[in-house]
């Protein structure tokens, strides 16, 4: 079954989407969109290092993403806020990565594949790695779910309940780095943030609890991956961007739906 490149591509796309969507809900709730984007961009340094020294791209991206995100989280202070430091660190890593790549002959043409993904080239090992990453992210999220929700609501409440908000935030950082690393082959470092955010944003009007929202986001993510892949096959368009465009269309659809619902059945405030 895995010998068919279409099956491999579909499994890869669905796997990355399923890992990205529930984590993306936390990214949306905590307004960490820029954190996610900078972490993904920093991964390019990891990719270039792995190409230069010939080790796994997955490991390289994971390593640099975790280091960058952790360093920035620890380093944030009263004079420079997190998003400024992210802008400095994330994009410095990216620039350095691009310079390193320019020294490696023959890689420049390949670079596009790491920026927007090359889902048709995923190997059996890649598919296994993606689903292993998916399993890891889901386990982390399910294990820490209530604690993460409480930290998202109010870190003081979490601390008073005996939790360590910093430790919970680190769980999110690790999960984010894993999603970035497994997403490189599918949508690339430039587009992975959209697989995190768009399905979560689309499901906001559909779920009345955080859990429902995360499940709807996963369904929308998986649907986008399948439809986007097929669309790219039919119209001969790049696959990663096609998946993201389908997700955006779903977002527009659910947004219109919720606006219409609000218009015709306005929520009546009691008392």
């Amino acid at each position: 079954m895995l010998d068919d490149f279409m099956v491999r591509a579909t499994l890869a796309g669905v796997g990355v989407s399923l890992a990205a969507a529930p984590l993306g809900c936390f990214v949306v709730w905590r307004r960490m969109a820029y954190f996610g984007e900078a972490t993904a961009h920093a991964a390019l340094l990891g990719i270039s290092l792995s190409l230069m020294f010939e080790f796994s791209v997955f490991a390289g991206a994971l390593f640099v993403s975790v280091i960058m995100a952790t360093a920035v989280t620890i380093g944030q202070g009263r004079s420079l806020f997190l998003d400024t430091l992210l802008g400095v660190a994330g994009h410095s890593c990216m620039a350095l990565g691009l310079i390193i790549v320019s020294f490696i002959s023959g890689v420049r043409i390949e670079l596009m594949a790491y920026l927007i993904g090359d889902i048709l080239a995923v190997s059996k090992t890649d598919v296994l790695l993606i689903w292993f990453g998916l399993g890891l992210v889901l386990l982390l999220l399910i294990w820490r779910w209530s604690a993460l929700l409480l930290c998202t609501l109010n870190e003081d409440l979490a601390a008073a309940s005996g939790l360590y908000p910093k430790r919970e935030n680190f769980v999110l950082t690790i999960a984010l780095a894993v999603v970035v690393a497994v997403g490189i082959k599918v949508v690339g470092v430039l587009l992975i943030i959209s697989l995190l955010i768009i399905p979560a944003a689309s499901s906001r009007s559909l779920g009345s609890t955080p859990e429902k929202m995360a499940i709807f986001a996963s369904l929308i993510g998986a649907l986008s991956a399948i439809l986007g892949f097929n669309a790219s096959y039919v119209f001969d368009t790049p696959t990663g961007p096609s998946i993201v465009c389908v997700a955006s269309l779903i977002f527009l659809f659910t947004l219109t739906f919720s606006l219409l619902k609000e218009h015709f059945h306005p929520r009546i405030k009691i008392k």
Binding site: R31, L153, D156, R204, T209, P210, K212
Partner: peptide, 20 residues
């Protein structure tokens, strides 16, 4: 310890009922 914070700003993007 029971702690009542000064404010609880719940982001509108997070669907959460009082019961949950």
């Amino acid at each position: 310890v029971g702690y009542v914070p000064q404010v609880l700003n719940v982001d509108r993007s997070l669907p959460l009922t009082a019961e949950r």
